[in-house]
Nucleic acid binder design. Structure first.
Lengths: 134, 134
DNA sequence: ATCTAACCTTCTTTTTACAGGAAGGTTAGG
DNA sequence: CCTAACCTTCCTGTAAAAAGAAGGTTAGAT
């Protein structure tokens, strides 16, 4: 059984984060010491690591909660896991499209800005007038 | 002079958002009616629209505050505006790279998942073991 | 004149996923 | 026995609003 800082280190999370996950009931410690310290078992650390990776894949806490229940369920249907993952991919694709548009617009604006100390700036002008770029 | 809902509509923002911008001192209404209603002038609406567009370009509120002061300043040096914009572009590029990596990893995982009711799922397996996806 | 719907106000709470810090108890080593 | 490094709970703060409660105002229709 590991105290919180060992558990955090082994799961590559911060102590604050691990304590937070305990508070919201995502990963509760296996037990407590006589002094009230959280004690984590190996299986808890595996769950924390699982969540850490899923979070890095930008799954939300609630999605992690769903994935974790599938992870803990021996009877888990992979269809459900695949569905959640495909949803996440679609979400990322949408965000990618938006960001690319945004970047291209800003590039265009910056490309037309002489960047000296003259007071007329096409970036400001565009924002002020709401003209469509391009 | 426009009441808040007219101002919001004309700037393509919500009433809540306009009131919020007034609260944080970003765009204060030109005046108040006898009953205490916020009253916005044309120039206020131009500023609100300016901020709305900048926000859609993912400038933070604080960056908007900076841009607005440049916008309001006849002596504004466009170099400063260009610098902020280029910074924003670099930031978006970083985020794009991260998101593409992430999506490719998830695609790989989903591609290897049979997606039926069998309990062995490579997505779960990957998250559980922390194996690197290539 | 009154009714009612649609406004408006301020204030408080909620959201996401923690981070930071205060005040105080515990433990391990020298 | 001292001290440093742990640990605890509780409170506040973050970004940028959204949502809702409780109540005042206004404009048009009856």
């Amino acid at each position: 059984m590991y105290k919180i800082s060992d558990a955090a280190r082994r799961a590559a999370l911060t102590v604050k984060t691990v304590r937070y996950y305990a508070d919201i009931g995502l990963v509760k410690p296996a037990g407590r010491s006589a002094a009230g310290y959280r004690l984590y078992a190996e299986s808890d650390i595996a769950k924390l690591g699982f969540i850490g990776r899923a979070r890095r894949y930008s799954f939300s806490i609630e999605q992690c909660r769903d994935l974790l229940s599938l992870y803990e369920d021996d009877q888990r249907p992979s269809a459900e896991v695949k569905r959640i993952t495909l949803e996440k991919i679609a979400e990322i694709d949408r965000k990618l499209g938006e960001l690319q548009e945004l970047r291209d617009e800003l590039r265009h604006l910056a490309g037309n800005c002489h960047g000296d100390s003259r007071p007329d700036c096409p970036i400001i002008g565009n924002l002020a007038s709401g003209l469509t770029v391009q």
